[in-house]
Amino acid sequence: MSELIQSPMMDMSRSLSGQVVTTKFDKILGWARKYSLFQYPFVTACCGMEYMATACSHYDIDRFGAAFARFSPRQADVIWVVGTISHKIAPVLKTIYDQTADPKWVVSFGACASCGGPYDNYATVQGIDTIIPVDVYIAGCPPRPEAVLDGLLKLQDLIQNQKHDW
């Protein structure tokens, strides 16, 4: 709750002796959304191995409120694009993005998804941001689990501070 209490309108709550917290509606919406991320892992390649490692008990992504992988885009908030996107799979990725219900965010996981990585050739899309909008990029080939968790925290920051539709 610390983010809420830092809100500029906090002064008022003192007079209400800690019973009531006032904040902006956007803030509380962001706070609620960032800790209940349902993710859709769009796993294609080697980065998926590190995604698995992050999701399992060693690194435990569950601690950050983003454990639940939903394999239907209609139930997901975050699309993790994990691995190389070839031209053959690109239309599928686009469809999945379109199917995801708002609000939605996209994390580009690893060098390949972000910019094509080691593959600069006829088969590979040079970064998924040529197809769909991306919110957070995670660098690495593959990124270490720590980097993935850092990327998740960055995404949560972004969600906390953005404007929400309601």
């Binding site: 690109a90 050739n121 006829y122 088969a123 040529t130």
Partner: peptide, 25 residues
């Protein structure tokens, strides 16, 4: 590859970076 791809990429005269995307730029 996909049916709309033209040419055969492992031939030596196919340039390595000649892309034929289905969607996107």
């Amino acid at each position: 590859l996909y049916e709309s791809f033209e040419g055969h990429p492992l031939r030596k005269d196919y340039p390595k970076t000649k892309r034929q995307p289905l969607i996107g730029p």
